[in-house]
């Protein structure tokens, strides 16, 4: 694995390896001294073309816990809006000796272009590109599901396990969601059964080959499919065109049909967990009751994000360094 661009590129074994490695990383994070020397002397650049405090901080924390030098490069305005081009920025970072570039970009495919153009020699980690992919988000979601829904909810006994047989409902704005795309690919690879639930206007044309079911009816999915996990997607108003008056008639109608409220919460299976990639629109796709319920793992998702990103950075960078193994460093 040279880059992490899309969860569609991951085999089942690679995905499980990342989750297992993340579990080991998480174990080190329970100590008083959380820092590992693994990536000492390596440079990780966070190249963010979109505002994203949470993902950037998560990657920054992960890299620092592995002792990497971290450079945050907040590129306001991409070449789309006539700033410095991605190419020139990438060449600059290459000249500065970046070992890894974590890129968040509003254009779908920008990380792919960065990884294949020859502009940088370093590893490229996709931290979210347009409406395409957000692989570390899907990995942290899978990690969170595995912790809660596989085995006895411990860490040690789930190593090597995938998500075979789990039923996951992903609800909301699939059309604009890189989180949904990454999750469908990854959860399928890990053996889970995914149902996407959305108003037809928020599902892409051409969804038929996706390895998942599609429903327009959240109540039916909650009742009939009895999902083990329900993931509420953020309604991404910032990505929505107003052409045709919008994608749904009103926020109230959206909430009524696709929001996770107390009534639908009550009909979920007892063990089901509630997830959200954040930031939440409380009262739109998720009610406060649901977001704050004991079955919500939304805050834990954030914590798990650090462990998963440590694992991704470790697997992409540390394994190139001879003599450095996680086991040694974690001692």
């Amino acid at each position: 694995m040279k880059h992490l661009l899309s969860t569609a590129d991951l085999s089942r074994d690679e995905a499980v390896l990342i989750l297992d490695t993340a579990a080991q990383m998480a174990a080190t994070q329970e100590r008083a001294i959380k820092k590992l020397p693994t990536l000492r002397g390596r440079t990780v650049v966070n190249l963010f073309y979109e505002d994203s405090t949470r993902t950037r901080i998560s990657f920054e924390t992960a890299a620092k816990r592995l002792s990497a030098d971290v450079i945050n490069f907040s590129a306001k305005g991409s070449s789309v809006s006539k700033g410095e081009s991605l190419k020139d920025t990438a060449l600059t970072l290459q000249a500065m000796g970046a070992d890894a570039v974590v890129i968040r970009h509003p254009a779908s495919g920008a990380p792919h272009t960065l990884a294949t153009s020859g502009w940088t020699q370093g590893a490229v980690l996709n931290a979210g590109d347009g409406t395409h992919q957000h692989p570390t988000q899907a990995l942290l979601d899978a990690y969170t599901m595995r912790r809660h829904l596989v085995g006895e909810s411990g860490i040690a006994d789930v190593a090597g396990r995938d998500l075979a047989g789990l039923r996951v409902a992903i609800v909301g704005d699939v059309l604009h969601s890189r989180v949904a795309r990454s999750n469908v690919d990854l959860l399928h690879t890990l053996g889970a059964e995914v149902t996407l639930v959305a108003p037809p206007t928020l599902l892409p044309v051409g969804i038929a080959p996706w390895p998942c079911r599609v429903s327009y009816d959240l109540d039916a999915v909650v009742t009939d499919e009895r999902p083990d996990a329900i993931m509420m997607l953020r309604v991404q108003r910032e990505r929505m065109s107003n052409a045709g008056g919008g994608f749904f008639p009103s926020a109230v109608e959206y909430t009524r049909r696709y929001g996770l409220d107390a009534r639908r919460m009550a009909r979920l299976p007892e063990h089901a967990i509630v997830m959200h990639p954040g930031p939440m629109n409380r009262g739109l796709e998720i009610s406060a009751t649901a977001a704050d319920s004991p079955r919500a793992v939304i805050v834990e998702q954030v914590a798990n994000g650090v462990a998963v990103r440590m694992a991704a950075l470790y697997l992409l960078l540390a394994q190139e360094t001879p003599g450095s193994t996680l086991q040694e460093d974690a001692r």
């Binding site: 569609a8 779908s108 495919g109 590109d129 347009g130 409406t131 395409h132 992919q133 890189r178 795309r181 892409p204 044309v205 051409g206 969804i207 038929a208 080959p209 996706w210 065109s241 052409a243």
Partner: peptide, 18 residues
Amino acid sequence: EGSQMHEGEISAQLGLAG
């Protein structure tokens, strides 16, 4: 508006506006 490629299975996968 904002379209980038043919709208179909590949645009759905690539996340490019159709």
